[in-house]
Amino acid sequence: MASNPMDSSTLPTDDYETLISTTDVELLKRAWRNEKAAPEILQFETDLIQRIREQILLMDETVEEFTSSGIDPLTVSLYQMDLDRSQFLLRSYLRIRIQKIEKYMFHIESTDELWNRLSREEKNFARRCTDDLKRHLDETVLSKLPDNYQSVQKQSVISEDDDMVPKPQLDTFVVCRSKEYLTGIQLEDGPVDDRSKLFEMEPGVLYFICYKSIKALVESGKIDLV
């Protein structure tokens, strides 16, 4: 969000970013954008969401108190708008994750790494979804097929991998921005010693890049998706 050229000349971008991104709402906004832009589901922000929930509840009570204690309606409406904005972010964040879970539930369920990224509620939801869909597919189609074709995951018993399970496309291109100067990003699956394929990122500059190559950096919070 470091967009003001006046500021970027006096402060390095990363300092400026940390300076303005101290509120949890700002952090939630970052998490929301990353989640929206990433093709796969990211780690659930347990602590952040917990804090945001508490803040929203508290603010909701405050606004009610204001209304009943006759504080000027303009002030109340400003607090209400602030509350609405935070609630929108929270809802949208949770909703994007639910959409991803619905789309890739079998894949998430069978991959430990992804499964552990879900919150407790999301795990419950995913379990119910997969159970329902499995039962539905069994009852309507699979149980009527020959023995070799009854798996939800595989086309037939000779399939080597789970070829009936939708997976996120990790070679999607995303737009991203680094907070710091990064070097040695590997762009292709080739050998690491091939320097020509290593890529560097300047802080604050936007890049279109294959999600797969920067996946780890998004997960560690070094790169933000835009």
Binding site: V175, E188, F199, V205, L206, F208, I209, C210, V226
Partner: peptide
């Protein structure tokens, strides 16, 4: 083209 630097593009 495997990655594109897009300096100063707006939102």
């Amino acid at each position: 083209t495997v990655a594109v630097k897009i300096k100063n593009l707006s939102a």
